[in-house]
Write a protein that binds this DNA or RNA. Structure first.
Lengths: 195, 195
DNA sequence: GGACGATCTTAATCTAGATTAAGTCCCTTC
DNA sequence: GAAGGGACTTAATCTAGATTAAGATCGTCC
């Protein structure tokens, strides 16, 4: 039995849905279980889904010309993720999205997303607020990359996502921070010696 | 006489408004003219407006602990800008927004924005799409900063915003790219010698 | 239980880009 | 028209972080 509590809670924090609207929402969602390591969207292909993480954790990354994986973001429980550009404009994605641990997701296809928004216009507000908040977070991250040292960024990361470090391999945290695993290792030692 | 053609065109590219809705929109806007150098939102204060650039160019920057200005973005004609976080959550902004040339803007206060969205729910869709597209652009920028060299980022910048270089001082382009003016100067010479 | 592979660490060396400092070229403005 | 100031360049030196390479640690799979 699929448990929709968490997605409903996330949405109803911002808007109020009646029973009909709620049913329309839930019936547009496809539920899927992923094993750790499973890939749900692949670079070079069109992104098929906008993804809500019900449980677990996904990572979205860009593979650069040297084959190095550059993490754009992690998505833990109750986060949305996916390549909105590829998803909505039907072009090839440059991002891959992979499960870091066993993960349960809800999927919206693009036609599903569009028809859902037509059926339940209130959701426009929900997604407007969602994107607005994500935009703020991305802006902050750009500012951080340009203004802070790797050490400062790492400390900020730990404070902002304290749970992530417990199960995300350090090399992906390094990638998210924009440094090599070797350098993150050095930073960690420096910090632990200081403390 | 204020000219609303450009903001209406930007919005009606995504949604269709009737006369009543259009009137509600336009009456929520405050129009203002800025001289080059004028500051319209100041770091340390609450951001009062969400800003549409009708003509001219604004720059939003973060001042780091060493007093260095780090440019988050430029906004040219038909772009929206402003610190959405401070604007909507009533906290102090860490960004300053300044006119780079003489500029005409339309301003929305937060109460104005909220009541406009209640009066004209269609605009939820417009802003949802606007934020969705901005989010994609910010994601791309994060990926770029982490994956490309300063030279590659500069070339990408020139291709994406070919007009900007004509009137934006190079030191701000350097800041946007996350390098020092001295280094951008070096990069430019390297490129011109190659060509 | 040993061999393999993946993650992480350490350390030496290297480099993209920062810092510092001086100089050039223009605008203002008095 | 001299004096000052801002934008940009050049060049020398310095450093945060990359690269390379070698271990250490720890599954896990046969």
């Amino acid at each position: 039995m699929v448990d929709f509590k968490s997605i409903l809670a996330a949405i109803e924090k911002h808007i109020t849905l009646d029973d009909v609207e709620r049913a329309a929402l839930l019936s547009s969602l496809e539920s899927r279980s992923l094993k750790a390591g499973d890939i749900i969207a692949r670079s070079g292909e069109q992104a098929q889904h906008f993804i809500f993480v019900n449980m677990g954790c996904l990572m979205t990354y860009f593979t650069d010309s040297n084959g190095v994986e550059r993490v754009l973001q992690f998505a833990t429980a109750s986060w949305w993720t996916g390549d909105l550009d590829s998803f909505s404009k039907h072009n090839k994605s440059c991002y891959t999205t992979r499960a870091l641990v066993d993960t349960e997701v809800f999927l919206l296809t693009y036609p599903g997303f569009e028809s859902l928004l037509e059926k339940v216009p209130k959701l426009e507000k929900y997604f407007r607020v969602l994107f607005q908040n994500s935009l703020v977070a991305h802006g902050r991250r750009i500012t951080e990359i340009n203004s802070y040292s790797a050490e400062e960024r790492y400390e900020a990361f730990r404070q902002r996502y304290p749970t992530l470090e417990q199960f995300v391999p350090q090399k992906y945290i390094a990638s998210y921070l924009g440094v090599t695993p070797e350098f993150l290792s050095k930073v960690r030692r420096r910090i632990s010696h200081k403390a």
